[in-house]
């Protein structure tokens, strides 16, 4: 067994009471921590020192969403995260904040209604007429990976698109939609797929930052599931006539013609494209250099394509 060690750490803790405070502030708690403690132990200790400090906790087994917080900007479940690991990552000055500062009600407690409403909107439950279906084992494996999602909202409140576009459904809802869309039991199929396709709300607005894959405390890989939902939209012919789908069509066409992309100037933004052109930044679309052995690329597109527009 590894020996228990102790260390002095300064915790800079977000404080805010929506009923009393005009602005949030940070309070410092300097304390000795042991190498065996998790962040939730620290929250408990702060509470012991200061009864006005608010946070939520429940299972302490990383099986529920209650204790999610951010440590130096990194969202996590407090009951799971070792203090030692955080010191190794960030040093002995640790900042503890709620998952979303702008939705704070009291200290670590936030109003999650935006997350929960969007999550509910994709109908995160099985809808069937009571028919029985057999599940294949490979399907079970994938579904059980998603089953480990505890709807903690960590991916949702780490998503930069959610931060700037209040209509975006966010990673957790997409993951759950995929769960039911890919499973054999649910019988409403088309309905959810159409919801996922909507502009501003749907999948296409993802910026591909991989924040959700990085933060998920349950290893669900939300963006990986979103890729599979995208694949599903194409396979079933739902991915039609949006800016995003025509962009992908252009990418594929260009790879087929030149091996590389013909133009990366922003065609929807003529003014930016003109500025780039003036600075010699956009190559002329009529003189794109082709990849060597282009015939191989064309042959592979022909033989390996699994989707159709």
């Amino acid at each position: 067994m590894t020996k228990e060690t102790t260390q002095q750490v300064n915790f800079r803790v977000f404080r805010f009471n929506a009923d009393e405070d005009y602005l949030p502030y940070y309070q410092n708690y300097n304390m000795e921590v042991t190498s065996k403690e998790v962040i939730l132990d620290i929250l408990n200790k702060i509470r012991d020192q200061d009864s006005s400090f608010s946070y939520s906790r429940n299972c302490s087994l990383s099986s529920c969403e209650d204790c999610a917080v951010k440590i130096n900007g990194r969202p996590t479940l407090a009951c799971k995260e070792s203090v030692k690991a955080m010191i190794e990552l960030f040093g002995s000055e640790l900042t503890i904040e709620p998952l979303s500062k702008k939705r704070a009600i009291r200290d670590m407690i936030i109003d999650k209604s935006d997350f929960l409403e969007k999550y509910d909107s994709i109908k995160p439950y099985n809808i069937s007429n009571g028919n029985e279906y057999l599940k294949e084992s490979n399907e079970m494996q994938e579904l059980s990976e998603i089953d480990s999602c505890v709807t903690c909202g960590v991916c949702y409140y780490s998503c930069p698109v959610v931060e700037v576009n209040e209509d975006f459904l966010g990673p957790a809802a997409f993951v759950k939609a995929y769960y039911f869309e890919t499973g054999v039991r649910d019988e409403t199929h088309r309905q959810r797929i159409e919801d996922l396709h909507r502009e501003k709300e749907g999948l296409w607005d993802c910026v591909k930052c991989y924040e959700c894959a990085e933060v998920c405390p349950s290893g669900v890989d939300p963006i990986g599931k979103m890729t599979k939902l995208h694949n599903m939209l194409y396979k079933e012919g739902d991915a039609t006539s949006s800016v995003a789908t025509s962009h992908i069509a252009n990418i594929k066409d260009s790879i087929g013609k030149h091996g590389i992309l013909a133009q990366l100037g922003s065609l929807s933004n003529l003014s930016a494209t003109m500025k780039m052109y003036k600075k010699g930044k956009t190559a002329k679309p009529w003189s794109v250099p082709a990849s060597g052995n282009l015939d191989e690329i064309q042959k592979l597109i022909e033989s390996s394509s699994t989707s159709k527009f």
Binding site: K208, T227, K228, H230, N231, Y234, A239, A244, H247, I248, I251, K252, S254, I255, G259, I260, L261, S291, I297, L300, I301, S304, S305, T306, S307
Partner: peptide, 15 residues
């Protein structure tokens, strides 16, 4: 060739 520019896999992961 192009790597798919982070979009091609949405259309066709295998390709």
């Amino acid at each position: 060739s192009c790597c798919g520019a982070s979009h091609l896999q949405d259309y066709d992961d295998f390709l």
